[in-house]
Design a protein around this nucleic acid. Structure first.
Lengths: 232, 232
DNA sequence: CGCCAGTTTGACCAAGATCAACGCAAGTGG
DNA sequence: CCACTTGCGTTGATCTTGGTCAAACTGGCG
């Protein structure tokens, strides 16, 4: 559901198409990242600050350097939909339409690399490795979206929450994970209500699958059982 | 949610990045399609025949020439998830993983263009327009997936069915549309059960929003009302 | 200390799932 | 040509999951 953990400068990026993680192209991919670093501008955003808004023209795509970015959309009647949480190494904002269909906000303190479309386009002409890297990023997003489609279309509340926790754990890699996002962020991401998310978490606590010292720090006690719930 | 209608040889394809439909690149895009036609193999599939299976290695991507392709996945416990219906002009099967995560089957009589990854890779080197075309196809898929994420995450059964009908209508373009796929295909695509799909359709009939001479042919009587239900 | 936003819990409700018939049209075989 | 089967589609009765509404709790922070 979520992409590999990767800190930007030393990112483990995937190679050829369609195989991920091949060794051959790795150095080339690193070149691509260095090239991007040259045309990109680093920017910092504070908690809940807007990186771009729905409806804006949109002249650049982004790469998360650190922190978490929330890609979301507000419906007319107030319902909100959080399409994605982007972690360090993830790319976002390469949408097709002339106007942005979603807004991007910082969940916590965030640093991103802003990459203008025009400069990227130029860079691609002379650097085919970058084109491949970009394609790979899109495929990662696509994969993630497909996985989430399954989650939202066919899984129960428990399954969704379990899958969410496990996905986060795969990034943070430790069994102690912190969720900087609010419960309603999580709910809007999983297609549930705040109350349901709370109840499922409480249920997991009662069943000793997780422990929660604070609301935003969760320990995965019985990872195997969680995996069994999330299955697939 | 769904891409523009497009018959392959005369396809209206979109241009630069990220703007869709720009006139400038159209002829170039046509070149790309002609180039693809050269490396691609046309294949026919009968109703319910498998184009590729979940777990297969996957050495090619595809473009639908005619007919409808169903991209789906079967869960361990029997639940099924239909990720996408692909219509003439749509591309599918460019997944990142070494193994296919979904299977592709023909919904009705289907013709596809099979495009091996290796040959595509080679063609891209010498034909940057193709690279752009491919990127565009991926962005289309991504857009579609995002839209469906919203649908599955936040919309009611009525809203889903209305949106589905309208999306189909935009492709077929007439008010008379036929749904060659079964009710359970539709249900598994919308994250509902067969019964719910039936009930909603019956409800729409009762409210004179649609008429249904047969189960697989539906007339949109009050498109405006349907649009109001689907909203957004 | 008291306020405020976010979190948690409980009581109740409704949308949609499940279970069970039934209808209907297209085969199939006698 | 007609009984019989088979696979969808439709409808109804009932149940469950998760949503809604409301209230209590918690932890920062002025």
């Amino acid at each position: 559901m979520y992409r590999q953990p990767a800190v930007l400068p030393h990112a483990t990026v995937s190679g050829g198409w369609p195989h991920a993680g091949s060794e051959i192209a790795r150095s080339g991919q690193l070149d691509a990242l260095i090239a991007l670093e040259r045309i990109g501008a680093r920017m910092r955003f504070a908690r809940d600050q807007e990186i771009y808004a729905e409806g804006e023209p949109g002249a650049a795509w982004f790469k998360v350097v650190s922190g978490i970015v929330r890609i979301s959309k507000l419906l007319a009647d107030g319902r909100r939909h959080v399409a994605e949480f982007c972690f360090a190494g993830d790319s976002f904002g390469f949408e097709r339409a002339a106007e942005r269909g979603f807004s991007a906000e910082a969940v916590n303190e965030v640093t991103v690399l802003r990459l203008p479309f025009a400069a990227t386009e130029r860079l691609i002409e002379e650097n085919p490795v970058l084109a491949r890297h970009l394609r790979d990023e899109m495929l990662k997003s696509l994969d993630a979206a497909q996985h989430r489609l399954l989650l939202l279309g066919r899984m129960t509340a428990c399954e969704r929450v379990a899958a969410f926790l496990l996905a986060l754990a795969e990034r943070g890699d430790t069994r102690q994970l912190d969720l900087p996002m609010s419960r309603s962020d999580i709910a809007d991401h999983l297609g549930l209500t705040v109350e349901t998310v709370c109840r499922v978490l409480s249920d997991f606590k009662r069943r000793r699958l997780i422990a929660a010292p604070t609301a935003h720090r969760i320990e995965l006690v019985d990872r195997r059982a969680l995996a069994a719930i999330a299955e697939d």
